[in-house]
Amino acid sequence: MSAGTMKRKGNPVHGWVIVDKPLGLTSTQCLGKVRRLTQAAKAGHGGTLDPLASGILPIALGEATKTVAYVMDSGKTYRFTVRWGEATATDDAEGAVIARSERRPDEAAIQAVLPRFTGQILQRPPAYSALKVDGARAYDLARAGKAPDLAPRPVRIDALRLIARPDADHAVFEVDCGKGAYVRALARDLGEALGTYGHVTTLRRSRVGRFGEDRAFSLDSLAELCQKDAAHAYLLPVETALDDIPALVVTGPQAERLRHGQPIRIALAAPGLPPEGELLVKADGKAVGIAERLADEVRPLRLFNL
């Protein structure tokens, strides 16, 4: 997964907007709508969702685009429905059916295979994916009849839960996973493990890192807020994406040194801070940027122009 970015003339709007992406839109189309609504000069999104998927799409505006990588690397939660007995070319409902089976797994069989798909596992990405093969997108090759044989790669599945079985043909799951995991591949592989076929019919992302459905706005509600010029209602601070990074509060002069690319010194036994690693630097209640600590020295990595 990768982040799209748009930069045009506009207003200096800085922060995160959490959008509940509707079905039928690409992530880039959704990004364009948000950028137009907010009139932000710069915007990017934190993780692609297919048009057939709905749910959480974090969108960074202005200086928040400098923190997109931290959101991309965070854990995600998806709820998805698998249709048993049919394999499709795309591993979802968009593709043509390429194989069928009369076998339908019962709940006991499904529960029995779930442990195989948790932890660090090897997963073969779908042929219809955005991965590049010799400079070309895998889905472009697949559409041209040259579907690539993608090598399995390690992904992290933190939890996989069977939520419901509406009927013999369908099962609903919820998965917590790390970066790079494909839900479509998970459905395909679950089907194979159960002696049948499987593909995704519905997919919804309910969490990206700390961004959940409780913070999300539909495009319609966002449009209404923007018309009222109520940016405070939808905009989260730039540093929201950095909640997992320890914060270092510095003085005004220290902040100025960092802004000029110069290191600062802090106490070796600074309370609550690790001896090395990345820090979120704040001064006067505002985020200054991201810095790296090594012993008593703190060097700027990425600064915010807020």
Rank of each mutant, 00 (worst) to 15 (best):
3 A>Q: 14
3 A>Y: 11
5 T>F: 14
7 K>D: 14
7 K>V: 15
11 N>L: 15
23 L>P: 07
24 G>I: 10
34 V>R: 01
37 L>M: 12
37 L>T: 09
39 Q>M: 15
40 A>E: 00
43 A>Y: 03
44 G>L: 00
50 D>A: 09
51 P>K: 04
57 L>R: 03
58 P>C: 07
60 A>W: 05
61 L>M: 10
61 L>V: 04
62 G>Y: 02
62 G>I: 06
65 T>Y: 03
71 V>L: 11
75 G>L: 13
77 T>S: 12
81 T>C: 05
86 E>S: 04
89 A>P: 10
91 D>F: 08
91 D>C: 11
97 V>M: 02
104 R>P: 03
106 D>G: 08
108 A>P: 06
111 Q>D: 13
116 R>W: 12
116 R>P: 10
119 G>V: 06
119 G>W: 01
121 I>M: 06
124 R>T: 15
124 R>Q: 15
126 P>G: 02
129 S>N: 07
131 L>P: 00
134 D>C: 11
140 D>V: 11
141 L>K: 02
142 A>I: 09
142 A>Y: 04
144 A>F: 13
145 G>D: 10
152 P>G: 04
159 A>T: 12
160 L>A: 06
163 I>K: 05
164 A>Y: 09
168 A>C: 04
173 F>D: 01
174 E>N: 05
174 E>S: 11
176 D>R: 13
179 K>P: 06
184 R>I: 06
184 R>L: 09
190 L>I: 01
193 A>I: 01
193 A>S: 04
193 A>M: 01
195 G>P: 02
198 G>W: 00
202 T>V: 07
203 L>I: 04
208 V>L: 07
209 G>Q: 07
209 G>S: 10
212 G>N: 12
213 E>V: 15
214 D>G: 14
216 A>G: 09
217 F>T: 06
217 F>R: 08
218 S>E: 07
218 S>F: 09
219 L>I: 11
222 L>D: 02
226 C>H: 13
226 C>I: 10
231 A>D: 15
234 Y>S: 06
238 V>L: 15
241 A>K: 03
242 L>T: 01
243 D>S: 15
243 D>P: 11
247 A>W: 10
250 V>Q: 05
252 G>M: 14
258 L>K: 00
258 L>W: 02
258 L>H: 00
259 R>C: 12
261 G>M: 13
265 R>F: 13
269 A>W: 12
270 A>H: 14
270 A>V: 11
274 P>V: 05
277 G>E: 05
279 L>R: 03
281 V>M: 08
281 V>W: 02
292 E>I: 15
298 V>E: 00
298 V>T: 02
298 V>Q: 04
301 L>S: 12
303 L>M: 15
305 N>A: 15
